[in-house]
Design a protein around this nucleic acid. Sequence first.
DNA 1: GTAGGGTTAG
Length: 805
Amino acid sequence: MAKDLLNFHIPIAATSSEYRTFPTKIHASSKPQNHEPRIRRHDSRKRTTFDRRRELRSVGNSILSIRRLLSNVNTGCLETALQMFEQMNKSSTFVWNVMIRGLVDSGLFQEAMEFYYRMRFEGIEPDNFTFPFVIKACAGVLGLKEGQSVHSTVIKLGLDVDIYICNALIVMYAKVSCVEDSEKIFEWMPVRDLVSWNSMVSGYVSAGDGWSSLMCFKKMQKVGVGLDRISCISSLGACALECCLLEGKEIFCQVLRNGLELDPMIQSSVIDMFGKCGKVDYAERFCVGIAQKNVVVWNSMIGAYALNDKPLESFSCMEMMQGAKDNVTPDTVTLINLLPLCSNLRALLKGKAIHGYAIRKGYLSHLVLETALIDTYGKCGSVMLAERVFSHMKRRNLVSLNAMIAAYVQNSKDREAIETFRDLQLESYAPDQMTFATTLAAYAEIALPKEGKQIHGLIYKLGISLGTYVPNALIHMYSKCGDLQAAREVFDRLVFKDLVTWNTIIMAYAIHGFGAYCFRLFSDMKNDGHEPNGSTFVSLLSACSIAGIVDEGWKYFDSMKRDYGLDPGIEHYGCMVDLLGRAGNLDRAKCFIDEMPSEPTSRIWGSLLAACRHHRNIKLAELVTNHIFSLDSDNTGCYVLLANMYAEAGRWEDAERIRCLMKKQGLKTTSSCSILENNGKTYKFKNNDKSLADSYIVFDVLDILSRKTGADLYFSSVSKLKPAELLKRRANSPIFHSVRLAICFGLINTTVGEPVLIRKNIRVCEDCHRAAKKISLITNREVVVGDSKQYHHFKDGRCSCGDYW
DNA sequence: GTAGGGTTAG
């Protein structure tokens, strides 16, 4: 392998430290008044062929060997070229240039840089030919520091007026996100040509600034530079970036006027532009007219369908490309385009098929493809396969790590997500907005406000540019961690709030049971000029369902379609089943599920099951569990709920039967656990947990409170227990449930007047709920308990959930 | 017999 031969490493610092500072010469000197180039360079083009031949002969390389070297480089036989190079006399700049060019052309940018440093180390002076290659290599490795160092050398050698070098610098600075430096170079260039203008147009696109690119494109035509195929490709990219159809159409007309429509790169750029501007039909019409389509053109069309929510067309497009007429083989980009469709369709098998195809074709390992696979597996619920791809990756970057964190979060592996986030920091990756937004979602599920605040501090410290993406995740995280006040502060400080921000804050108040306040926020949102979407109504209906505001719930449900043309989705139906269940209208809830336009999920049935339990309707519960098991046979919660219902009704044989069934299937109940924080430390309690050093105090307080709240609570609610069973269960009594231990610990360790905040991994049981209400009354303290769905604010003997959850 | 700008993707 060519790379093995490139084992000559010189540390960058040893060779380029003298060029580390950014060159200021071009900015400090006065702007040239005319466009006459300052002649300061040794222009090799002025040398005659004879001179060059004589020079090359004089350094001991025969013309034949140089021709062979060039031919190897030109045909991509880098390995042979490298072997030849090592045996040649290396004192001429020419042979180094040829080698560096070869490496750059093969995408071996780091190796090209190392070759340049080696050249300098051996005392060979680079010339005007060397720098365009080297600068391109700097852009390739996105090395701003290296680029600046090379730029210094260019100035020192008086080559900063060379138009080729300047053009390369423009592109390099834009690619490393310093487009202002590109602008300065462009502005100060003594002479600009079409390539200089094109470099600026494409430079702005690389920097993500499509509008500046289009303005530059217009200006270049105004000053009479004209345009060529590359101007069109770059400006079409700008239109695609900004979804600017009008400009895109104009450029398309220019393409036709200039007869450029047969150029495959133009073709793919046009399709891509139309696709990104939401005009997949235009893209399709243009694509159909292309007689011979290459793989990039096909990929652009597949991508356009995918982007415009036409997954089936994307797949059939892939089949067409492989058809007898075109017979084009899908490449890595084709697969990368198709994988998100599998994610959206939750089509795990299709994703696996693409993975298999990639392996058969030898496309792996490929960083982007592997990242897309992690994403697909994560979204399709197979975190194990995502992990497998991740662990086999030869190379990773921030995006692949973000994808793995997201896969964990999507599959409720929040601890693993946080662990991966920590690894990412240890490996010195600089987390970005995506990293934080995803990791915050993991914290939202399992953390307490203190940990959340720490990650918030880190975001602040790193100066992550915010937008709304991270603040929205922060609002969600704080509300889920129980600190609604902190969520509100983030919301209030956010100057530009988008629809997601509003939906998130409404949901924040919803899960804390402040239903009525959510309706006010909804009205504020509309006054702020936002049209609600499906998620807004999930927030609103959740608010109604959690706070038990039945009438408003129906009002919003009806308003969705009538006022906003939004079809209720499965989540909206879920909220309505909750509401009907709460009202005790179980038959109506069942009919409502039966009449749903889409197939009910196990979650929908789960809502009805919770209602059945609340209203002690075992008959319906049995029917509902059958539905749940047919969809989700290892739904532990469902087994437990049914078993408890049987137990409460004194139907011990049935309860035992359900427990046996669980055992048979190897299902284990999730053990309850409650957490709270005190003095910056998180304390974790399990049921009947005596592991804490001063747990005897906790148990003493619990004893006092149990007496005051009526220790017979538990026994009264399960009074149909047999005496033997009663004794057996004494040890597992709800009196010692984790949440009660945590409440006692909180009461002991927090200041009077401060609420006691607890998070719990599973739903609060009826006994603990009843006890918490009494404790709040007796101690005159607010107790806040968050479970997997909502928060219960216990105050003055009442709960914000209205005793339905 | 060496240079600069360019398409699709996570």
